[in-house]
Design a protein around this nucleic acid. Structure first.
Length: 367
DNA sequence: AAGTCGGGGAT
DNA sequence: ATCCCAGACTT
């Protein structure tokens, strides 16, 4: 058994393993900058399997970054709906516009860092994979692989840990292999070096790995325990008129830019009915009558446990509201809807009607 | 440094 | 039920 960690030897065994075990992923077939940029933004905090159908749809609809930059934001949000972390969609759109204006996607990590939504990891990933720049790209996979390899027992999420990880990743890459090193490190973390039960027998670094010799390799990385989601009582008001539903667009923040039957938290000591009237008055400047309670929708987020009391409400007017107030009428069919709804909004609508054939949408406050 | 921001698959 | 995923941004 050896404890050496020569970067050259580690790189060689890593690349050999990668060439034998790399998965076929759509953005690996033709890793041009737009493909890599799109995949990396979508993959932030999101599993590959979840991303795949979205990636294919985006690329089919917007084959080039110029196509995407020219798309209306409404279509972007609609296409992103269901993928989560919706600020990513706006950031991607803004970044694509900047890139198109500059004549193309920047080719260095330093320049990529200037684009909205592109941080240290994503900039490193695009620069190395699409342009071959030998830079570090430390995501959750790489963090896990490298803390285990080196027996790094401190919290790697702190500033010192991040600097240390960047340095360890950087010493493993080099000219001509940058893209493969980046993807190999992530591939290792996504397969053999898994969070719960790592398969050290399948890892090319097991002979060099500190964690592999520990009683519990999965004890690294040493991440702080996360807090339980905060129970958040909410209320939603669904106003239907035959085949029409009243929707509003959310401001930046939670579900920012998406459409929904108005839905907000209930304040302390406030009744759901009062909250509903308050929300429609403050957010939309409308008086409503609260009808029957339809039921409750639960929606789990990382930091919140949303419990939404859903009511039928009456808004005047519902159908054919004055265009002067900025209303938009949208046909709704599963294949042609072009408004983005969160999963939560879909649950709320599903509670009151299986398939609303038509939506009327109230235009938003500007976002 | 801590909090915010989705959704879902794996265990 | 719990964890955490090809993280970035705001406070």
């Amino acid at each position: 058994m050896t404890t050496t960690k020569l970067p050259e030897a580690l790189q060689a065994s890593l690349l050999q393993w990668y060439h034998a075990h790399r998965r076929k992923l759509p953005w690996r077939e033709d890793p041009q900058p737009w493909h890599v940029m799109l995949s990396e933004l979508m993959c932030q905090q999101t599993r590959i399997a979840t991303v795949l159908p979205y990636y294919d749809r985006f690329l089919e609809r917007w084959p080039t970054v110029q196509d995407f930059a020219a798309a209306p934001e409404e279509q972007v949000m609609s296409a992103w709906a269901g993928l989560g972390y919706y600020r990513r969609a706006r950031n991607l759109h803004a970044a694509a516009k900047e890139a198109a204006a500059r004549g193309g996607i920047p080719s260095t990590k330093a320049e990529l860092l200037e684009l909205p939504g592109i941080g240290p990891y994503t900039a490193g990933a695009i620069a190395s994979i699409a342009f071959g720049e030998p830079v570090a790209a430390v995501d959750g996979n790489v963090e896990r692989v490298l803390t285990r390899l080196h027996g790094y027992a401190d919290n790697p999420r702190r500033a010192a840990g991040k600097r240390w990880l960047e340095a360890r990743a950087l010493e493993l890459t080099g000219p001509g292999v940058a893209g493969d090193v980046t993807q190999a490190l992530m591939e290792l973390g996504a397969t053999a070096c898994s969070p719960r039960n790592p398969s050290c027998g399948a890892c090319p670094w097991s002979e060099h790995c500190d964690a592999a010799r520990m009683e519990d390799p999965s004890s690294l990385p040493a991440l702080p325990a996360r807090r339980k989601p905060v129970l958040t009582p909410m209320v939603a008001g669904v106003c239907r008129d035959d085949d029409v539903v009243f929707l509003a667009r959310r401001a930046p923040g939670l579900f920012g830019g998406l459409w929904e039957p108005p839905c907000e938290p209930v304040s302390q000591g406030e009744s759901p009915e009062d909250a509903l009237r308050r929300v429609f008055r403050e957010r939309l400047g409308r008086r409503i009558e609260v009808g029957r309670r339809v039921g409750e929708v639960r929606h789990q987020l990382t930091h919140r446990d949303l419990r939404v009391q859903v009511f039928e409400v009456t808004v005047q007017p519902t159908r054919r509201p004055p265009s002067a107030e900025g209303y938009v009428e949208q046909g709704y069919h599963g294949a042609t809807k072009d408004l983005g709804l969160s999963r939560l909004a879909e649950k709320v609508l599903h509670l009151t009607d299986e398939a609303p054939p038509l939506w009327v949408a109230a235009a938003p406050a500007t976002t």
